[in-house]
Design a protein around this nucleic acid. Structure first.
Lengths: 213, 213
DNA sequence: TGGATATATTAACAGTGTTAAGTAGCTTTA
DNA sequence: TAAAGCTACTTAACACTGTTAATATATCCA
């Protein structure tokens, strides 16, 4: 039954092409100007065809959301080689930061926008619900535990400490991406260069947790 | 010239009524379903009338944004009474957290959404550009400096340390509000109750900076 | 060859922000 | 007093948005 196989492959193909088009528009022009109709124009199909492959717009958004986590996941994967867990933790932070800056649209989708996770709640099929947790949080959690094995942060609860590190770095990224740091520096006349705040703040954070070792 | 005065007052009145209607819809039904047309229906004017008082929708959004900062500002003001700066810092954190939970729509507008600050950039009149910085960051900055006067965090740069504290608490709030903590707890089977994560994490953070004293 | 099935389309609904043009009603001027 | 001007507001329209129902077309199997 090669033909039905090929048909299924073709169907999957179009589903992927829709996603690629969405990704293209999304990374090029941002979320706001990525509409179903524009995606349809890129793949040269009618807008309604898209609804044969994705339930609604948030379904596409969530698919991109997963792509983002795959990207971040592979970035994190390479860090596994680093033996020293504290060194790994630091590099992990920089990687996260760089990801937020290099792929700010994806970062927005993955950690700032409400829609993708809301969609997940509405979806019954929950088999891949843990994707996010597994891909992004587990490496951090593991690294913290490795740190504790080496005698660092021994008095800390590993889960809460992981959440703390994540929260701080996410806080830095999201406030920076949305121009809050710039505004505060301007408003309070702080003598920090706007372009350097994120870097400086992160460096400062690393020095800070170094003291907690 | 009492008549022109009254007319001006009437005009200001309607401007305020538009804002009140926007606030009502906004807090009751969220950002998504707060449209110009719905605001118009509430104040019983035609949609286009609103454009005589506000430049565009983001203008209204930014007005609400300012209202939010006024609210948070007054919450912070009462904390000034607390003598011990470290105690004040802790209370300030709780106040911020409570604000994010109690007025999550406003929190979204003030610290998560891009639009209001983007609008600010486009606006020429920059006289009240510092509102945010002055109302929300300055009390924190001052408290940190007060802490240092008492001998706490002496080796820290007060500005970077303030940004660190803000980032962490904002990170906690924004990740929690958007359901990321819930997702991570589910996915990684952490034995923390979803409703308690934010509180526990913040408590943990307070203990952590207590160690840095 | 005919009917079922899968796939794609057109047309439409109900909504969005926003603008151009037009209209009452009051105020000022000739 | 009548005409002109100004202010506050409305109607109609444009160009979009996500989404659905109804319809057409092409392919497969009996």
């Amino acid at each position: 039954m090669g033909i039905t196989e090929r048909k299924k492959r073709d169907k999957e193909d179009l589903k992927q092409r829709i996603l690629d088009a969405a990704k293209l528009l999304f990374t090029k022009y941002g979320y706001e100007s990525t509409s179903i109709r524009k995606i349809a124009k890129v793949i040269e199909f009618s807008p309604t065809t898209i609804y044969l492959y994705y339930r609604d717009k948030n379904d596409i958004l969530y698919a991109l959301h997963r792509e983002g986590f795959k990207m971040l996941g592979t970035s994190f994967h390479d860090l596994g080689k680093i033996e020293d867990p504290f060194e790994r933790l630091k590099k992990m932070g920089w990687t996260y930061l760089q990801f937020a800056l290099d792929h700010s649209d994806f970062y927005e989708l993955m950690f700032i926008m409400k829609e993708p996770l809301q969609w997940l709640d509405e979806d019954e099929c929950s088999s891949d619900k843990w994707q996010e947790g597994i891909n992004a949080f587990e490496p951090l959690h593991k690294t913290i535990i490795d740190c504790q094995k080496k005698g660092y942060f021994e008095d800390q609860d590993p889960k809460l400490f992981s959440l703390f590190v994540w929260s701080t770095v996410h806080g830095l990224c999201s406030l920076s991406l949305h121009g809050h740091f710039e505004q505060v520096v301007k408003g309070n006349k702080l003598d920090i260069h706007p372009d350097k705040i994120l870097e400086d703040s992160f460096e400062n954070f690393l020095n800070l947790i170094d003291k907690l070792k």
